[in-house]
């Protein structure tokens, strides 16, 4: 099998895809190694789903080529469909079938049985097994995703494509979901996963930041954060809304974004001199309680800076 010779690589060479006037993918190239957990990070409309569909042979690219497990996505469509697992972004199982019926159906479609590959899905499936007689449409968001993952895995694929598997799932289930992906990776399965949540990026081996159909940067999460070359400050105050505007008006401000409970600020120049001027500027604007502390950049900061 493919797993033994470990050629579960994905190669993407200069792929372009247009929908009418809109360029969904612009000359995108990526190399993903065997057994890698690779993350596509980017906002909605970045072209992630289009890329998945091209790799799973569902769409034809306008130009460029791609291969999965050494198989061409256009010519070797049948063989690829036998060897990959795909979990689309939308919940795509039968809502009127029970959990068990769904899994059984997908097992037989791929010419296998639940028993045969139970060890692979055990961790995931055991969590939803108590509800196996419940209709899939009546499951919670997290359980639906676990079922969908079980169905995508039941035939022991060499490569797994997960399109936004954690969208709409609560934080606890999301974290559990990533734990599962870690275990699957150890089985040698190549996993390409997309997510709009930047905080999940750190769970990947490598990530690609994509926006408007282009790869902005490809590296390990650590590498990407290390490449962030400015000093970053978290600024907090009581009146956060007003603060954002005032910070952006400060002459030496490079960028300032609202991040949860703090504003992340970078300055054009670093140094005590600028910091003092900033403090004076804020005091002049009437802030008494401003806290200003240097922080480590997150993936999201890196994304915003690109």
């Amino acid at each position: 099998m493919g797993r033994l010779n470990m050629n579960n690589e994905i190669h993407i060479n200069h792929i372009t895809k247009r929908y009418g006037d809109v360029e969904a993918l612009r000359d995108l190239s990526l190399e993903i190694g065997s057994g890698e957990l690779f993350g596509l990070i980017g906002p909605d409309g970045a072209g992630k789903t289009t890329l998945f569909r091209i790799l799973t042979t569902l769409l034809l690219a306008d130009s460029g080529s791609a291969s999965v497990c050494g198989l061409d996505v256009v010519k070797d469509l049948k063989e690829i469909r036998r060897r990959v697992g795909y979990m689309p972004g939308r919940f795509s199982l039968y809502q009127d079938l029970t959990v068990e019926e769904n899994l059984n159906f997908f097992a037989t479609v791929f010419n296998t049985t639940i028993e045969e590959n139970y060890d692979l899905v055990r961790d995931i499936y055991s969590q939803i097994e108590p509800f196996k007689h419940r209709r899939a449409g009546k499951l919670s968001g997290g359980m639906k995703q676990k079922l969908a993952l079980s169905c995508a895995l039941i035939h022991r694929p060499d490569v797994l494509f997960l399109d936004e598997p954690t969208t709409g799932v609560d934080p606890v289930s999301r974290s559990e979901f990533w734990d599962m992906l870690d275990r699957l990776k150890r089985q040698g399965i190549t996993i390409l996963v997309s997510t709009p949540y930047m905080d999940e990026a750190s769970r990947c081996d490598r990530i690609a930041l994509v926006r408007s159909g282009e790869c902005l940067s490809i590296d390990t999460p650590v590498g990407i954060r290390a490449s962030y070359d400015r000093r970053l400050y978290a600024v907090r105050s009581i009146s956060m809304y007003k603060l954002l505007g005032d910070l952006r008006e400060f002459p030496d401000t490079n960028s300032c974004f609202a991040f949860g409970d703090a504003h992340h600020l970078t300055l054009r120049k670093d140094g005590e001199d600028v910091m003092r001027r900033l403090r004076d500027y804020l005091k002049g604007k009437g802030y008494e309680d401003v806290s200003l502390e240097p922080i480590e950049p997150s993936i999201e900061d890196c994304f915003m800076a690109l």
């Binding site: 469909r81 795909y86 795509s92």
Partner: peptide, 13 residues
């Protein structure tokens, strides 16, 4: 419409 066709197509069926 439900998106299940997408999954069926990416299968050896």
């Amino acid at each position: 419409e439900m998106g299940t066709m997408e999954v069926l197509l990416v299968s050896p069926l």
